[in-house]
Nucleic acid binder design. Structure first.
Length: 386
RNA sequence: GGCGGGUUGGCGGAGAGGUUACGCAGCGGAUUGCAAAUCCGUGUAGACCGGUUCGAUUCCGGUACCCGCCUCCA
């Protein structure tokens, strides 16, 4: 059997991947906050983990892999958009407007990511469907002394977790020294973070032992991964920008709530996307969505091909030139595979390259038959790693 | 300030301690009514300074530069 090797952010080394249970390999990836169209940067983790998902299914069998990716549908940006619509005179309730916003955004997300040839995860839980589990976990953390309530907020007591900072390689003291964080007066310690916060009447809220409120950002992933995958699972993925504080906080919450378990064994982070050498941002005018590209006539497979041309652990630079070259290359590959009979199994060299820490660039490079590699990697269609 | 990633030929981008990467672009040629496509051939590398070694672009150390994170942005 192929041995997959992955760079584990925990150890900062490439390690052999050995699942807890080969009959049920489990992966959790942080999904989008559904407040707007997915921008191009959002597509990178989707494609990176799509390749990993396909590889896992190839190695362990389709029925033996569970991939969970959440939708964060509790968020101030969503609230802001709903309030904006309300302000424009929409007569419906805030809750209805929020629901409308998240529904349409999820539909867009599905359509856009489908266009990139990404398989849908096995489960796509929404945060709002797990509020009860979050409340239960928070209550448990309070009971165990890892969290405290202050002025309607519940805060995680960072100092109560010995290994805080291990994933991102920081010490609590260093972080405080360089902190640009605004310290709320009710915090025992500047690093403590919110598990639950109060909502006024203009915001969505749920009843809890601490009053009407809404969850903090990090608790949803801890609660949902526990509910769907258990206290220990194999792989946790996401963008490197989430490593701190989001993933650090997830670990703290989950490890303290379930001290007997290991939470995620392998942490895989993808590097960021840039556009023409610069960070994509609205102020630089180089910000665009996946849908923008699709509407301009850039095929999803071209986007996928360009993305996978760079190893996930390196910054990926999206350039007009790469887009053009990818179109040329794919057109030629299409001509090559035209009329070819799909192979029953992917080339061993392809699997080997991908098993080597998802070396998609190396896999695309060569060393094996062009005809078979073209579709397998790029379009994920009939010849895909399944 | 703290933490992390990177630096290969015109551009993108791999593997390997010693042998041609590959692709695109360029150049020469074949084919072609023209063009496109296709085919053949071909040049240009490994940021800088040290170290290990018979030999390093590949291992080790340092320097420079670029980028990101530290702000509920993937």
């Amino acid at each position: 059997m192929t041995t997959i090797r992955l760079r584990n952010s925990k150890s900062r080394k490439v390690e052999e991947f050995h699942p807890i249970d080969p009959e049920n390999v489990q992966m959790y990836v942080c999904g989008p906050t559904v407040y707007d169209r997915a921008h191009l940067g959002n597509a990178r983790p989707v494609l990176v983990f799509d390749v990993l998902y396909r590889l896992l299914r190839h190695v362990y069998g389709e029925r033996h892999v569970t991939y969970v990716r959440n939708f964060t549908d509790v968020d101030d940006k969503i609230n802001a958009e709903a309030q904006r619509r309300k302000g424009l005179g929409d007569p419906r309730s805030l809750e209805a407007l929020i629901a409308e916003r998240t529904e349409e955004t999820i539909a867009w997300y599905h359509a856009d990511m489908d266009a990139l040839g990404a398989l849908r995860p096995d489960q796509e839980p929404r945060a709002t469907a797990f509020i009860g589990q979050m409340i239960a976990m928070i209550a448990d953390l309070i009971a165990k002394g890892h969290a405290y309530e202050k002025e309607g907020h519940v805060l995680f007591r960072v100092r109560s977790y010995q290994n805080y900072g291990a994933l991102s390689g920081r010490s609590v003291d260093d972080m405080i020294a360089g902190a640009r964080v605004e310290v709320a007066p009710f915090k025992e310690d500047p690093m403590d973070f919110v598990l639950w916060k109060p909502s006024d009447e203009d915001l969505p809220g749920w009843d809890s032992p601490w009053g009407r409120g809404r969850p903090g950002w990090h608790i949803e992933c801890s609660a949902m991964s526990y509910e769907l995958l258990g206290a220990s699972f194999d792989i946790h993925g996401g963008g490197i920008d989430l490593q701190f504080p989001h993933h650090e906080n997830e670990i703290a919450q989950s490890a303290c709530a379930h001290p007997e378990a290991g939470f995620a064994n392998y942490w895989v982070h993808n590097e960021m996307l840039q556009v023409e050498g610069k960070k994509m941002s609205k102020s630089l005018g180089n910000f665009f969505t996946v849908r923008d590209l699709l509407d301009q006539g850039v095929p999803g497979e071209v986007i996928r091909f360009v993305m996978l041309g760079t190893h996930y652990g390196k910054p990926m630079d999206w350039t007009e030139r790469k887009r053009e070259e990818a179109e040329t290359t794919l057109r030629k590959w299409r001509a090559l595979v035209d009329g070819a009979v799909p192979a029953a199994h992917p080339a061993a060299e392809l699997v080997e390259a991908l098993a080597d820490d998802l070396n998609t660039a190396g896999a695309i490079a060569d060393k094996f038959d062009k005809k078979s590699r073209a579709k397998m990697i790029v379009s994920g269609s009939s010849l895909s790693l399944t």
